[in-house]
């Protein structure tokens, strides 16, 4: 077997005395869609935050294509190819859809302040072609008519979709999705699923955290179950969901 795209090894994250992530290890292969499920407060978001670099590790290591990442700051990890969506779609409320999509393509953009201040033709041309690329992308997903709408005015499910498209636009090497279906309606879920299935066919490596077991089962070949910060099992969705301890964890939560 080759090196995994994303390797998480013995990761512990603690807030004071609370071990929100406790000795979790898993590996995601290139092109794989990997699921993480667990009841509320199990530590799923914290696990993704540790991959993004938002919380420090107490112990353990995280690697991307066998490059150790856990010493890097969040923006450096993003530059290496860690893409991410947010559980709460209201993190960025004030962007127009088009500008938020452009933010997802930061890596491809001219960020020279001096160049922008002097309105150098090169900078303006680059900006223009970026805008065209984004409009095309929105058009392809039937979102052309909301391109100018401010995010907080979109229905929640649509915001979730925009957030995922924003992350996909950055062409990450691994995409971390935090609860893509939370707060969405069934029809939204179908649209989200289709987008993610298509991304998977294109070879995207994805980690999906979600409460909707059905949704995760449809997308993922393998899932990891966490509870109280600890991993209680990994396997195909069918295998894992059959295990009594997993069922107990979920029953206990609901």
């Amino acid at each position: 077997m080759t090196d995994p795209r994303l390797g998480v090894d013995g990761v512990v994250v603690a807030f004071g005395g609370l071990r929100a992530v406790d000795e979790v290890s898993f590996a995601v292969q290139p092109g794989e869609t990997f699921g993480i499920i667990g009841p509320n407060g199990a530590g799923k978001t914290t696990l993704l935050n540790s991959v993004s670099g938002l919380v420090p590790l107490r112990t353990g290591s995280i690697s991307l294509d066998s490059t150790a990442m856990h010493g890097l700051r969040p923006h450096q990890r993003a530059a290496l190819g860690v893409g991410r969506t947010f559980q709460a779609a209201e993190v960025f409320n004030d962007f127009r859809v088009r500008d938020y999509m452009l933010l997802g393509r930061l890596f491809a953009q001219q960020t020279s302040v001096i160049g922008a201040a002097l309105r150098l033709p090169g900078v303006r041309r680059a900006e223009k072609s970026e805008r065209v690329a984004v409009e095309n992308l929105l058009d392809r997903h039937g979102l052309a008519d909301v391109a100018g709408v401010v995010l907080k005015e979109l229905p929640y499910g649509l915001r979730k979709l925009v957030d995922i498209l924003r992350a996909l636009a950055g062409r990450p090497r691994v995409l971390l999705l935090d609860e893509p279906t939370s707060g969405t309606a069934t029809s939204d879920r179908l649209a989200l699923r289709d987008v993610l299935l298509e991304a998977g066919r294109d070879g995207m490596t994805t980690v999906v955290v979600d409460h909707d077991v059905q949704f995760v089962s449809e997308l993922c070949g393998r899932v990891l179950v966490v509870n109280f910060g600890q991993q209680i099992g990994t396997g195909t969705p069918a295998e894992v969901l059959q295990r009594p301890d997993v069922r107990a964890a979920f029953m206990g939560a609901d």
């Binding site: 993004s52 938002l54 700051r73 969040p74 923006h75 530059a79 991410r84 947010f86 993190v91 962007f95």
Partner: peptide, 10 residues
């Protein structure tokens, strides 16, 4: 809007 989230975007 959110410094930490912005850093995650790169």
């Amino acid at each position: 809007q959110d410094e930490a989230a912005a850093s995650v975007l790169g």
